[in-house]
Design a protein around this nucleic acid. Sequence first.
DNA 1: AACATCAAAAATGCATGCACTTTTTTGCTT
DNA 2: AAGCAAAAAAGTGCATGCATTTTTGATGTT
Lengths: 229, 229
Amino acid sequence: MDILPHTANDVRRPRRTPVHAKLVEALRDMIVTGEIAGGAKIPERALCERFGVSRTPLREALKALAAEGLVELLPNRGARVAALTARDVIETLAIVGNLEALAGELACKRLSEAELQEIRSLHHQMLAHHARRDRLAYFRANQAIHQAIVQASGNAVLAQVYAALSGRIRRARYAANLNAARWDEAVDEHEAILAALAARDGPRLAALLRSHLANKSYALAGEPAHAND
Amino acid sequence: MDILPHTANDVRRPRRTPVHAKLVEALRDMIVTGEIAGGAKIPERALCERFGVSRTPLREALKALAAEGLVELLPNRGARVAALTARDVIETLAIVGNLEALAGELACKRLSEAELQEIRSLHHQMLAHHARRDRLAYFRANQAIHQAIVQASGNAVLAQVYAALSGRIRRARYAANLNAARWDEAVDEHEAILAALAARDGPRLAALLRSHLANKSYALAGEPAHAND
DNA sequence: AACATCAAAAATGCATGCACTTTTTTGCTT
DNA sequence: AAGCAAAAAAGTGCATGCATTTTTGATGTT
């Protein structure tokens, strides 16, 4: 229906995304949501059939995910989801905390009122989810806030690195709030974070973010890293 | 040419690395060293012939490098080396500086005498290269020192992320010392860094590393990001 | 029954081929 | 000659096929 040769519309229609790129997204989701468990083997054939594609783009996607660190490649023996040890999570959280602290400092220097309002709005949504004990919705709002702060830093590379690392431990971060007491605590910390952000107090915000993440780390240290859906 | 059929040697020879992995290495080198210029297109066919491989593993390698951020994929239009804008470099240096600061703090808590000696040795080699004005050798020793500090943090994820980011801006970091005055300054900064490390003064080391990297950033801000070999 | 050995089956790694898209060239019009 | 359209060439994207490696399972030995 849209095959009017060259004459009709010059508008370069939004080139459909390549199959391998779609597969990267799909597989990343499956891994992050735990649909494929950590450490599990990834059978090429089965997934090819499931997605209705050939092995070539699937394998390309696996190489990309391996470069991201979500997947491990075993030469001649296939691929498997990178298993997250507790240590991996703790190490990553230390880095993520540091990056958020940096982002917070930068954000304070350039945060617009609109951005602040957006974050404030997310914060209130998050509070509502907390009151309702809707863990998944809370988690999403929470992530959105952290992401928004990082975005507000104005450092695009930082945003990219943050997103990548963050994705790698997403499951574990979710698990970190399974403990009700820790959950309430985290909400309190977020109040302080919002206040520092509103006051554009960079150093204070940095310190808060760093300890917020460090606390997640403590919350996890006791529990198995995979105690998740 | 090396096709000895199945009978020959049972010894499970140290599984040769897959072609796609070798290509990742080779291409990364070509990009980092500038053999393929920033922004340049990457012609699949030509590289396949050059390496004597088919397009499949080459394309897999490109997907991996794209996930690393070294390469940009243009749907239906091939791949090209990600062009480093001055802004990219500055943004990345901010992150790298922060990561090194974190690494420094962690390293101070667990640095062994042997590790310190190793770094001290690298430091003196670096001084020698500086005295001789051997820029390349200096650069290598310098990188080795930073790498060693990051390794000494004991955080493997940090080391990996650091290496990846560092690689992305390797060319630019090299260029940052083209200015003789800045070069001398950098050497002085390294003296202070070594002192803080020897004293296991984490906060001080963190501050020094952060400003050391920030200074590189200033040094670059004025010059074109590609003013390199 | 436990173990080793070897053959069959399955899975991986890479090469090749075909369809489709983009780019370049050619030929025509103004 | 400049500009434009159609055709040709080149290049990319994915599917398929074959060789090799790994895994599984069967067979025979101790």
